[in-house]
């Protein structure tokens, strides 16, 4: 690590203390699925708001004061918008507290931490994004980043799956990417039946578009609709990937999803001719400090917060079977 890297890492410290959070204001909340929300948020301190920069793939530590801190990636793209976004599933103490907050509430944020997607390595390549469930959040930051610099990349294919139609996140993005003629979007669900009363027929008939973000929120059953010409497939992500069979030539696959999906996706990519160096993923661990000190996020000698969260399969291969 060079001195400039280090000073770079220290750019956005509150009061020079790496553990002190910045106070952030929630500006908008989007309910992605019944258990997943995306928060648009911004620095309360306007100077930092102007100076803050990050890269796709980096994460932060978010806190509800009095409840605790938890790590999430920044799900928005550095190429877009005057605010930041993060997306989280309601699963534990901190995420439950975050889900209860409304627009205008204050949260704590430290970051950005970790490495980022290797943009230099991805440019000029055909990109295959493989996402599952809320794992689309970090990919989404990169996808928008790529699409905002479209001429620097080759073909872009997105294979995204969720458990059921109701569990598909970022429908407004899937919709927008589907509309983009330079992007091939394949959406799949493990099963068509949804936990919510599912309009399976409508999904199969594909007779209506994914609804726009505004009308979708709170629209109940009617949001279980998919794009017109884009068939919602049925099947697990690795299976669909195998059927779609993207070429490994001059390609990079970027994978993020639940550990079980990642575990089954790498072998499929291998079968399709992708080398471990051509497979990229971003990992999630219980990163308490985010800065390589608290000790718990390691896979072997690799600390996900310090050395990742973005890795090539080649880097984590020897440990992945037993600890991820």
């Amino acid at each position: 690590m060079t001195a400039s890297d280090i000073s770079d890492k220290h750019r956005f410290l509150a009061q020079g203390n790496v553990y002190l959070p910045h106070i952030m204001i929630i500006e908008k909340i989007i309910e992605e699925t019944p258990g997943v929300k995306t928060f648009h948020f911004n620095f309360k301190d306007e100077q930092i708001r102007d100076e803050f920069t990050f890269e796709s793939g980096q994460f932060g530590e978010y806190s509800v004061f009095g409840v605790g801190e938890a790590p999430f990636c920044i799900s928005s793209s550095p190429t877009r918008g005057d605010h930041l976004e993060f997306t989280l599933q309601r699963v534990g103490k901190v995420t439950n507290a975050l889900h209860r907050l409304g627009v205008g509430a204050e949260i704590g944020f430290r970051g950005p931490y970790g490495n980022s997607f290797p943009i230099d390595l991805l440019q000029g390549k055909n990109l295959i994004f493989v996402g599952g469930g809320i794992g689309l959040a970090p990919l989404r930051s990169l996808i928008w980043n790529v699409l905002d610099n479209r001429d620097k990349y080759g073909d872009v294919q997105i294979i995204y799956g969720a458990r059921s139609p109701a569990d598909l996140c970022f429908r407004y993005d899937l919709d927008a990417w589907g509309d983009d003629k330079t992007v091939d979007v394949i959406t799949t669900v493990d099963r068509q039946e949804s936990r919510v009363q599912s309009p399976v027929s409508r999904v199969e008939a594909g007779n209506s578009r994914l609804q726009s973000q505004e009308s979708r929120v709170g629209a109940g059953d009617s949001r279980l609709q998919t794009a017109d010409s884009r068939l919602l497939r049925e099947g697990f992500v690795p299976q669909v990937l195998e059927q779609v069979a993207p070429s490994a030539e001059n390609a990079m696959a970027i994978v993020c999803g639940p550990p079980i999906m990642i575990r089954f996706t790498f072998p499929v990519l291998g079968k399709l001719g992708f080398t471990p160096e051509q497979m990229i993923t971003t990992l999630e661990k219980r990163m308490k400090c985010g800065i390589g000190k608290c000790g718990r996020c390691n896979i072997g000698d690799i600390y996900v917060c310090r050395d990742g969260p973005v890795f090539t399969y080649a880097q984590i291969k020897r440990f992945i079977s037993s600890e991820h």
């Binding site: 806190s63 004061f65 605790g68 000190k293």
Partner: peptide, 18 residues
């Protein structure tokens, strides 16, 4: 050296502990 970071709060004030 492994540590946890945790919050305690009473009404409107509290502290973060390591």
């Amino acid at each position: 050296y492994c540590f946890d970071i945790t919050d305690e709060k009473v009404k409107k004030q509290g502290a973060r502990f390591r």
